[in-house]
Amino acid sequence: MSITVVVADDQELVRGGFSMILDAQPDIDVVAEAADGIEAVALVREHRPDVLLLDIRMPRMDGIEAARLVGKETKVLMLTTFDLDDYVYDALRAGASGFLLKDVRRDDLVNAVRVVAAGESLLAPTVTSRLIAEFTSRPAAASVSAERLAALTVREKETLALIARGLSNAEIAAELVVSEHTVKTHVSNVLTKLGLRDRVQAVIVAYETGLAVPGS
């Protein structure tokens, strides 16, 4: 079964280029294109795509607001021309499962769509650096208090801390000397107990609660 995608970008050539690259893949089907956030939201609700490829800066409604509106209905993969975009943190909090720069290589774009469609999260290395930098300039916050981490077992807290370091399931398994299946169970438990959608939100929670510290 094909991965269905809506591509939203206010630049027609960029939008068309991404659509052409993705539509050329045997397992990906671009079902619609949008020129702004309002169109993107309407098309997501019409077509129910697996992935919304969404520009962060668009007229009428930007990508962050669009992600807030449809982030629970589809996986959102955001694109920007700026590796130090001021809105990276807000975009991830709004519901984005992935974040890439517009100069991403063709193969990496295709892979990102597949990864996000499969329920994983994906961040460009420069975006990860930006995200961590945000935590050094913001007070510890808001949505998930440190007390809620009490719901996690010791092993689950260790797993969350390693997720925050950007480790894959295989790398976490090696670090904890357990099987990948066990790690998948720990990850699933962490997301369920904390009410999180994916690993991106888990990273945010780990830093907000002080379980992970920038530079560690």
Score class of each variant (00 low, 15 high):
103 D>K: 07
47 H>Y: 15
47 H>W: 14
67 A>S: 14
102 K>C: 11
70 V>H: 00
86 D>K: 10
20 M>R: 14
53 L>R: 03
98 G>V: 02
53 L>G: 00
21 I>C: 06
48 R>L: 12
90 D>T: 07
63 G>Q: 03
63 G>H: 02
76 V>S: 01
74 T>V: 12
84 L>C: 06
108 D>Y: 08
18 F>H: 07
29 D>Y: 10
37 G>N: 12
47 H>M: 11
58 M>T: 11
66 A>C: 08
63 G>V: 05
105 R>Y: 09
82 F>T: 02
33 E>Y: 07
32 A>D: 15
73 E>A: 06
79 L>M: 11
54 L>H: 01
50 D>Q: 13
109 L>A: 08
84 L>A: 13
53 L>M: 09
61 M>S: 04
23 D>L: 07
60 R>P: 03
102 K>F: 13
73 E>M: 08
69 L>C: 06
33 E>D: 09
51 V>S: 04
99 F>E: 02
85 D>I: 08
28 I>Y: 08
36 D>E: 12
57 R>A: 07
101 L>C: 06
20 M>E: 15
32 A>M: 09
23 D>Q: 15
103 D>Y: 10
30 V>K: 08
108 D>L: 10
24 A>N: 12
109 L>F: 10
60 R>D: 12
47 H>Q: 13
103 D>V: 02
40 A>P: 05
40 A>H: 13
38 I>W: 01
61 M>N: 05
107 D>K: 11
57 R>C: 03
31 V>Y: 06
28 I>F: 05
44 V>A: 08
99 F>W: 08
71 G>V: 05
27 D>C: 06
42 A>T: 14
71 G>W: 00
37 G>H: 10
35 A>M: 13
79 L>E: 01
46 E>Q: 15
22 L>M: 09
96 A>H: 01
71 G>I: 07
64 I>L: 07
27 D>A: 15
99 F>D: 00
29 D>K: 14
93 R>A: 04
32 A>N: 10
104 V>W: 04
104 V>G: 06
23 D>M: 07
65 E>F: 01
75 K>A: 09
94 A>L: 00
69 L>R: 14
34 A>V: 08
64 I>R: 01
34 A>K: 07
97 S>G: 10
60 R>E: 15
97 S>N: 14
90 D>W: 11
102 K>H: 09
24 A>M: 15
108 D>N: 10
99 F>A: 03
91 A>M: 09
79 L>I: 07
65 E>I: 06
59 P>I: 12
45 R>L: 11
19 S>I: 04
101 L>K: 05
96 A>L: 01
54 L>D: 00
81 T>N: 12
28 I>T: 11
78 M>R: 01
40 A>T: 10
71 G>L: 07
85 D>F: 05
41 V>G: 02
79 L>N: 03
83 D>F: 09
